[in-house]
Every structure is written in C-alpha cells, then in structure tokens.
Design a protein around this nucleic acid. Structure first.
Lengths: 221, 221
DNA sequence: TTCTCACCATGACGTGCGTCATATACACCT
DNA sequence: AGGTGTATATGACGCACGTCATGGTGAGAA
C-alpha cells in the first residue's frame, strides 16, 4: 500500500502507520495539460501535493486578465494550502502546466499531520519560505523592463527543465507578465544575438549567463 | 519579568517558564523612523517580532531602485524569518516606517520554539499564509494601472491606520511601485473628485468605497 | 492532399507613465 | 526673521510596451 504517498519527499519523515491511515482519505489524481486542479474563490477543501508535472498558480487581475503568480514544481510540492489555515477560499487557481499527477489530501487530515507530527510543520514552513522569497523577487522584478522579466522566467524554467524548456511564447508571456507579441519580439532579439534558439513550443538556452547578467545588471547605490 | 515578551500575541500560548528562558536571549529594541532593522544580503541571525510601529520590507531591483515588497504591522508580527529556515541571508531589508519597537530573537531560540511548542508552528504558518496571499495580490496587481495600485496601497494603509494615514507621497509611491510625481498627479485627481484630502505627510480617505470600486472594476471572463 | 488551428513573426500606432525641470509652501532650526 | 531641507504641485517630452492588424508555418485531422 501507501504506493503513492511514500513517493512524496515531504512525507518521508511520516511514520508508515500514519501514511496507511492517510491513504484511505487521500487520492491520487491525474490531470492533462490545461486542466484545473482548483479554482480561485471556491471553498478550499483540499491540499494538493504535486508528484509529477508542473502547476501554474493563476490569479485574475481586477480587469480580468489572468496572471501566473507562481509555478509549483514537484520539489515545491504544495499548493492549495489555503485549505489548512482556516481560509475559506482559494486565492488563486491551479492549472496543470504539463500533464500532472497530484495527491489530494483533505484539509482536516493535513492539519492533523501539522499538529502531531513533530518537525512536519517546520518542513512546510521551509517550503513556504522559499516560495515567499520567489514571490518577493517577482515583485521587485515587476517594475523591471520586460526583457529582464523574461530572462528571469526562462532561468526559473531552466532550473526545473534543464536547458531546453517546453513552453510557448504564450505561456512564457504569462509568467513574465507581458503579452505574447512582446515575448516573441524580445526573444527574437535574443535569438539574433545567439543567446537562445527556439522552435514550436520549446526554447533552448544557449548562453544562460547572458540572461543572468541581465538580472545582475546595475548593482547601484 | 518577561515584560515585553508577554505582550506579543504570537507568544500568548507559550508557557511562562519558557518565556522566562527566552527573556535572557531576546532583546527589546527601539528604532526611529527610517532606521534599519536588518539588511538584505547580510547573514540572517535573528527573527524580529514587531511590537509597536510599522516596518517596510524593501528589496533592491536589478537596477538598484528599492521596492517595498511588504509592510509588516504589529498584527503581522514577524520578519527576518530567513534566519529560521536555514537561509544564510536576508532576502530583503527591513526599514522602520514609523518609530518602532521590536523584539529580536536569536534564530536558534525561535527554531526551538517551533520544534517543541505544539501549535506554535501552525500559528506561524498562518501568518505566513496571509502574507503570501497579500504578495500574490500584489503580483497580480503589478500589471494594473498605477491608479489601482495606489488605491490598493491606500486601502491597506487604512486597514492599519484608520481613515487618516500618516504617509508621504514618496513613501506611498514606493508601496505602489511608482514615482512620487505620478503619485501626486493621480492623488491630486482623486482630491479634485473629492475622494480624499491630504496635507503634508498625511492623507485622509473620504470615500474609500470609490477606491475599492477601482479594484473590483472589470470582473470579466 | 487540403483544411484547420495553434504558434510564430513583424509592422504601425497610441499612450501610460517615467524622467527632468521648475515653482511654491510648510516645518524646523539658529 | 531668514535660511535650509523636504513635501507638494504641474508642465513638457520621450519611450517602452500594449494593442490591433496581417501574414507565414508546421502539425494533426479527414
């Protein structure tokens, strides 16, 4: 048993008996690219642990255009955490960015783990903290020129996918908070400079150092 | 004793003996407006609990202009949390926005609380979660027009200060990620419409509903 | 093969807002 | 009273980037 729970790194310190108990309420689910795990505004009933694949957290702006506020990878495991801390609704939607398998855990069960598995809450805190650091970075970048935001998005993608990342300009532009036309324009310029190459739905980073240099640019004052 | 620790809401569930022990290593410190609690990039050695006053978390962009990524109020208590989760450096600076009193707790002591005070980690998690929600909101707003970002900043200020908020255009513009000239221009327009009034260093929100309406604007799609 | 539908690519145009420049007013100090 | 520094206010100008428009290309379906 506990076939799928045991594979989740976050659970490695949980006792086997405990995992067995979880097994009865947890549920393994598969999503195809583009499908929705949960929706912004709906009651937060479950926590999701990403096992394979890749999930965008998307939030609507006041004018209705969706913005990708974060990308959850298998290492970053967690989403839908609103369910645990007494929030009644998810504050963002989760959309499968690739084919994804995820474990759904009812919020009560997850809360119980937090309460009585020593050390578990700290691990969750650490995850949350790195995510927060990323969000803080994203905010400070939000005012930077689009080229830098795209470079940042590409580098984060590279960190999980390697030098060739499967992504369209459309998706990339969402992550960078811009429009696909702009993304194409700027990436075309990068191609001309030999920093990257790209074809339908994939981009390959040839000179990531150049991208990183954009982000370190002016360490002024 | 434990004079200052006992006043911190986050510690209300900690046993008195434990607080006594903390007292020996914790330290109460006062900062005048503009002084720095800790600096981005420096080794993260302490967690800070805000008791009175108001702290900006500020991060530098690649081009060196500082951006306020978050504002810590006494209810939101915590900052400098990098110290606890094994991060070696603070990812942002903390600047006193008003005269502030804060408690410095060495990271080891705070980590110990997390480990062996049942329920404490969950409380911290909840704080972190609401902060995350705010950051997510800020990110989704980052692409909205400046007028909306200013409205959002004003409303958040109102939530902690009441209808009259002590802030300059300069500070406000930082929170909204824009320039003070723009802030003045847009707030002047709001004044002409009778939504707010302002004088040197303070602004009064007469019609907060109008501001909120800006943020609910187009619930499209 | 051809049809269709994403995705990729590039041009033209308008504008929100950053930037610079200049002026007035209030607070505080001596 | 006068001097200095910071906050407020407004105009002029330019550019990055959003928006709209048009066309090319590869992939999968019938």
């Amino acid at each position: 048993m506990k076939s799928f729970l045991i594979r989740i790194p976050l659970f490695r310190a949980i006792s086997p008996t405990r995992l067995d108990a979880l097994e009865t309420s947890a549920e393994l689910r598969r999503f195809r690219k583009g499908e929705i795990l949960f929706k912004e505004g709906l009651p937060a009933e479950s926590v999701w642990l990403i096992q394979r694949g890749w999930v965008y957290l998307v939030k609507r702006t006041p004018q209705g255009t969706p913005v990708t506020i974060f990308t959850v990878t298998p290492e970053e495991v967690l989403c839908g955490f609103s369910a645990v801390v007494g929030q009644s609704a998810y504050y963002a939607s989760a959309v499968a960015a690739t084919d994804t398998t995820a474990v759904r855990v009812p919020h009560a069960d997850f809360a119980r783990l937090l309460r009585d598995q020593p050390g578990f809450a700290e691990e969750v805190l650490a995850i949350y903290h790195t995510r927060m650091r990323h969000l803080a970075e994203a905010i400070s970048l939000a005012q930077a020129p689009v080229e830098q935001r795209l470079a940042y998005a590409l580098l984060r993608l590279r960190a999980t996918f390697g030098k060739t990342v499967p992504i369209t300009h459309h998706e990339l532009s969402h992550m960078a908070g811009t429009r696909w036309e702009t993304s194409i324009r700027i990436l075309s310029a990068m191609k001309r400079k030999g920093w990257i190459i790209s074809s339908r739905g994939k981009m390959t980073l040839l000179l990531p150092r150049k991208l990183r240099a954009l982000l370190d640019a002016h360490p002024a004052g």
